[in-house]
Simulated assay, not measured.
Amino acid sequence: MIVTFTANPSLDRTVSLAEPLRTGEVQHALGAREDAGGKGINVARVLAAAGAETLAVLPLDPGDPFGALLTNAGVAHHGVPLAGVVRANLTIADADGVTTKLNLPGTVRTDADAAAITAAVVEAAAGATWLVLAGSLAPGLPDGFYVEVIRAVRSRWGTASPAIAVDTSGPALAAVVADGRPDLIKPNDDELASLVGAALDTSLPLPEAVLAVARRLVPTRVGAALVTLGADGAVLVTADGAWHGTPPPTRVRSTVGAGDSSLAGYLLAAIAGETPADALRSGIRYGSAAAALDGTVAPTPEDLPTGDVPVVPLETPNTTTTTGGHRD
C-alpha cells in the first residue's frame, strides 16, 4: 500500500492552444479538460492506473463534487470532512508544450483542521509501505506542517512506520529537510539549489553538479533524493550510490504533473524490489509518458515510451544499495 497525502488539492483545468499564448489578446482554444489534481493526487492516479494499491488522503468538503472526480478516476481516497471546496488551477498549454499556470491559494486551514488532517494521515498510514506527502501547503498551515505529520506517524507506528517521500518546495521543503529526516525527497534542480542556498556548478555536467549539491543532504538529512531535470532526465542519489538516467526522445505536450508521475514510477519499482538504477529508469519512463500527454492526464503502463533509458552510475554503488526508505 502506498498512501498519498495532498494538503491543498486542486481541480486542474487545462486549456490547449494551437499557437503560443499571446497575453492581452483573444485566442481560440482547441479544447479543455478537467482532472482531479494536486501533487499527491497525481501520484495516486498514476499508481492506481498501474494497478498498485494506493489510498489518497485529502481535506474534502462533503458537498464538494471533487470526490466524484477521484472515484471516476479509480482512486481510492479518504476525504477528511472539512469545510471549503477544492481550489481550481488553470493551465494553458500550446502546441509546443509550453505551459502557463495560474494556481489559486486554496481554503485557509485552522489549527483544528490541521489536527484532524494529521490524525487521518496517521491512521491511513497503518501497514503502508510508503507515505507520500506532496504539494504546496494550504493557507493557514505552518511551514513545518509536513514535519509535524512525519513525527506523528513515526510516533504512532514506530518501527512499523512507512518510508516517507516528500515532494514540495520552498519553506515547506526546507523545514522537512531541516527537521523531518524523510526517506526520499523529489526536487527538481532549481528546487535543490534553492534548498541548499548554493547555485549548481556550471563548470560541471549537470548530473555531476546536481550530485555535488545533493551530497550535502544525502544521507545526513534525507535518505535519498530523486532530482528531476526535465529533458535531461533525472539523478538518483542514495546513501550508497548515485545514478543519472536519460529519457527517450519525447514530443512534449504538457510538463504539468510530469514530476509527480516520475515519483510514482520510481515508487512502483521500489515496492517491486527493483534496483536503484531500474527504479530511476521507471521514474524517467513515467515522467516522459506524462509529458507526452495532455494536461494532467495520468499515464498508464500502456503509455510508457519504449525507447531506451540509459542509466549510468555517477558513483560506485555499495553492495548494500537500496532504493531508499528504512523498511525491508
Rank of each mutant, 00 (worst) to 15 (best):
I2H: 06
T6W: 04
L11K: 11
L11F: 03
R13L: 13
V15S: 10
V15N: 06
L21E: 05
H28C: 05
G31S: 11
E34F: 15
D35V: 09
I41N: 01
V43M: 09
A49F: 08
A50L: 09
A50T: 05
P62Y: 08
A68C: 01
L69R: 15
V75E: 07
A76I: 07
G84P: 08
V85M: 01
I92C: 03
A93C: 09
G97K: 10
V98P: 01
K101H: 07
N103S: 14
G106W: 02
V108W: 06
D111A: 15
A115G: 05
A116M: 10
A116C: 07
I117W: 03
A119P: 12
A128P: 09
W130S: 14
L131K: 13
G135R: 06
G140F: 01
Y146T: 09
Y146I: 04
V149L: 08
R151N: 14
R151W: 03
T159E: 13
A160M: 07
P162V: 04
T168Y: 02
T168V: 04
A172N: 10
A174G: 14
A174C: 13
A174R: 14
P182N: 09
P182D: 00
I185F: 08
N188S: 12
L192P: 12
L192I: 03
A193K: 02
S194L: 10
V196N: 09
G197Y: 02
G197E: 09
A198I: 06
L200D: 01
L204D: 10
L204T: 08
L206K: 02
A212W: 06
V213E: 11
V213F: 06
R215H: 12
P219F: 08
A224M: 14
V227E: 05
V227Q: 04
G230N: 07
V235G: 06
V237N: 04
A242T: 06
W243Y: 14
H244R: 14
G245H: 02
G245W: 02
T250W: 06
R253D: 08
V256F: 10
A258V: 10
A258L: 00
S261F: 05
S262Q: 12
L267Q: 07
L267S: 06
L268E: 01
A269T: 02
G273N: 09
S282V: 01
G283K: 08
I284P: 04
R285E: 01
Y286T: 02
A289S: 14
A298P: 03
P301Q: 05
P301S: 13
D303V: 13
L304C: 02
T306C: 02
E315F: 01
T320V: 13
T323H: 12
H326V: 15
